[in-house]
Design a protein around this nucleic acid. Sequence first.
DNA 1: CTCGCTGTTATCCA
DNA 2: GTGGATAACAGCGA
Length: 275
Amino acid sequence: MPEMPEVETVRRGLNSYVKGHEITHVEIRYNDLITGDVNQFIEFVTGATITDVGRRAKFLLIHLDNGYTIISHLRMEGKYRISADPNAIDKHSHAIFTLDNGQKMIYNDVRKFGRMQLWNTDDLKNNKSIQKLGPEPLSKEFTFETLKPRIMRHHKDIKIVLLDQSVMSGLGNIYVDEVLWKAKLHPETTANHLSDKDIQNIIELSNQEMEKAIASGGSTIRSYIDASGHKGNMQNSLKVYGKEGTPCPRCGTEIVKIKVGGRGTHFCPHCQVIK
DNA sequence: CTCGCTGTTATCCA
DNA sequence: GTGGATAACAGCGA
């Protein structure tokens, strides 16, 4: 499900339900969900209290009071639901955390791509996945000075570069298409052909897009829901993602869909020309 | 039925 | 380094 706005929405939802609560019981129904030793995961999480739910790019960080953090990545379709209703658990519920108030924090993932890992809270910076992340939108490191060299050093299509979480993090397939449309950049433009103005646009528009998407509760295209089971609204504001065959909101030319780096890519062939 | 597609990322190989 | 393919998995629609 998630790009940064969706993960942020989940983070906020989880915080409102689980912060300050003890995890009294853990059930892992799909062992591959856990990176590392499953029994150790269960042992360390059981009895711990959730002090805060944070986020770095698309990673959820469930901080515990015992010095450990559950690093949770939802990948394509991972979801958290808070419920005391046994019917909320189904065959796609792979982890069930029972809380001291009787509620259950249920991790669902139809495709089983998501992963959880326990890590020392003080050492998160050295976790391999977290370590390699580039600056994310809306953070103070997300500046022209930082991003320009990171982007320009690549000779690949700009779409590929923006999806590369080690260059900058947080954007995924939907929002990269949206940002490139707004910046009037063809997704197959080679990254080092961009002008300073283009880089500046990418930064500003990424910030705008993330801010707006978070305010809208994320995009529900196929399956995304937040911790309360609610859909987002941002899908109603998308300009090109999933809009192939419809007129470009700017010039009326039909939006087309191609493959770039194996990912479905939507753009306006009139507004977005290869440099 | 089969094929292709899906908000992700890690890994392997030329 | 880079590019591409492949893998993890399940469901949906054509």
